[in-house]
Design a protein around this nucleic acid. Structure first.
Length: 496
RNA sequence: GCGCCUUUAGCUCAGUCGGUAGAGCAACGGACUUUUAAUCCGCAGGUCCUGGGUUCGAGCCCCAGAGGGCGCACCA
């Protein structure tokens, strides 16, 4: 061993030489498989209530990782962890024999083992497995993080998620919540006749939202492609095709800043329902959220800013123009002269760009003055036409659209419209976007001719919805950062 | 991009006024047949993020840079 090596190198060398010693003695330190009869959770469910000091005749074969070891001379207590639970192993030298006892004593924290034994409880009542034989299933050659604190350094937790998951129960719980939320969405939507589809990630045009895209290149076609920024335009093509109720849960990519609420790749759920409008979609959104919370946590109550909020109560519905009017004390509407709105924005310290029209200025005012105060679930409706190129005009007000964004805890979680299905109006909206793009608005869209061709075949009246799944999991799971709900968040490259 | 904070053993963290680098856990050697983060005795383990600078002397002070966190900006 290199005398100058650090503690980690010494430890790895020791464990690797243990691996070699096992091989020389005829034991494979990395065997191929193991037959498990029960998970540890199964055993706790079936036997969790037996009296202290009980020895049963129940034989079990379990497998997991050694997390803790308490050497007691001629007894060893070890904590075994599998995906479902932890259970104590009780190893007696008198039961397993000297050689097996020494081999078990030589196990390191982090090793995977398969165990045969009987279910028992100790005198103090701890449910345990009395080991009759134990087989190494995989040798860990790198030591585990601190057995009590786990990993706490956020950078290391995100970069080495494997080590985070081994030691941090809270991290495992968060990803269980994530799974439960997504499974709940699928169940709710399948029950209502929606079918799940997959549409392209590689797009010719980065449409369906306002965001800067990632660029890539296809070699064989020698063509520039974009990673999708939204699912919308392909799903609506399927509504044109008569599929009537479709949804997709998929990764989208936006080439923008990273924060506690933004990751460059994130998961969006979008659905489209023929013959529905945005009010139907509000009801469906409430149902999806409540079902997801109940399925993931057993309760429709979530915690927002340390206060409980019951998602099952009806959510506030309020127009964006009314919120801005309330916040400024001045009635606003996109039909007003731009100069009046510019003056109001400046009065409130809101920066106005040259390409901002009245509708965009109202939205800027909303974002700066209203958004962060929307703690309880709120459907903000009636976005100006100017900022909603894919939403249809409000049936009562030609300057607004039938649209809502859902805010919870000051964060946008969902966006929905009565979908624009008039191909002539849609073309005019796209052409307006194209002009803005040429005028220097990098986020403005372009004219998607194929989508327009689809609309020309006739899209039924349709309600559509997009939900940021990561943010929803944050809400239901109680995570402060989006990185806590994404297994491998985007980080700068690590220097090795 | 800007501001504040942060980076010390494998992990979790101390480190005073600028004076030879510390603890707990993990590891290693030993004791222990009912432990629960076992306990007890002993031992080993360091690029103090990197590079400059000031100083007789820098983990500590100064400058520059890197990683990370939070806030702002950006993000309909």
């Amino acid at each position: 061993m290199d005398q100058n090596a650090g503690g980690l190198e010494q430890e790895k060398a020791r464990r690797l030489s243990a691996v070699e010693a096992l091989r020389e003695s005829g034991t494979n330190p990395y065997p191929y498989r193991f037959d498990r009869s029960h998970t540890l959770g199964d055993i706790r469910t079936a036997h969790g209530d037996i009296e202290p000091g009980t020895e049963t005749e129940v034989n079990v074969d379990v497998a997991g990782r050694i997390m803790l070891k308490r050497d007691q001379g001629k007894l060893i207590f070890a904590t075994l962890q599998d995906r479902s639970d932890n259970i104590q192993l009780f190893v007696s030298k008198a039961v397993v024999g000297d050689d097996a006892f020494d081999a078990i004593n030589a196990l390191d924290l982090g090793d995977w083992v398969g165990v045969s034994g009987t279910v028992m409880t100790t005198r103090k009542g701890e449910l345990s497995i009395k080991v009759s034989s134990l087989q190494l299933l995989s040798k860990a050659v790198r030591p585990l993080p601190d057995k009590w604190h786990g990993l706490t350094d956020t950078d290391t937790r995100y970069r080495q998620r494997y080590a985070d998951l081994i030691g941090n129960e809270e991290s495992r719980r968060m990803f269980a919540v994530r799974h439960a939320v997504i499974a709940s969405f699928r169940r709710t939507l399948h029950d209502r006749g929606f079918i799940e589809v997959e549409t392209p990630v590689l797009h010719m045009e980065a449409g369906g939202a306002h965001a800067r895209p990632f660029l890539t290149h296809h070699n064989a076609l020698d063509m520039q492609l974009y990673l999708r920024i939204a699912l919308e335009l392909h799903l609506k093509r399927l509504i044109v095709g008569g599929m009537e109720r479709v949804f997709e849960i998929g990764r989208v990519f936006r080439n923008e800043g990273i924060s506690t609420r933004h990751n460059p790749e994130f998961t969006m759920m979008e659905l489209y329902q023929a013959f529905a409008d945005y009010t139907d979609i509000m009801d469906l959104t409430e149902l999806l959220f409540v079902n997801a919370a109940v399925d993931a946590t057993g309760s429709s109550v979530v915690t927002i800013d340390d206060l409980p909020v019951d998602l099952s109560k009806p959510w506030r519905r309020v127009r964006m123009v009314d919120l801005v009017t309330e916040a400024t004390g001045v009635t606003v509407h996109p039909s007003q002269p731009r100069e009046d709105l510019v003056a109001l924005a400046e009065k409130h310290g809101v920066k106005v760009e040259k390409h901002h029209g009245p509708g965009k200025i109202i939205e800027e005012l909303f974002e700066h003055l209203c958004e962060s105060s929307l703690r309880e679930p709120t459907f903000v409706t009636g976005h100006p036409v100017e900022i909603s190129p894919l939403a249809r005009e409000d049936r009562n007000d030609p300057h607004l659209t039938e649209r809502f964004e859902l805010f919870v805890g000051g964060r946008e979680l969902a966006n929905a419209y009565s979908e624009l299905n008039d191909p002539v109006v849609q073309r005019a909206r796209f052409e307006d976007e194209q002009k803005q793009k040429e005028a220097g608005n990098a986020e403005a869209g372009t004219v998607d001719e194929d989508f327009l061709r689809a609309l020309e075949f006739g899209m039924p009246p349709t309600g559509g919805l997009g939900i940021g799944m990561d943010r929803l999991v944050m809400l239901i799971g109680g995570a402060a950062s989006i990185r806590d709900v994404i297994l491998f968040p985007t980080l700068r490259p690590e220097v090795f």
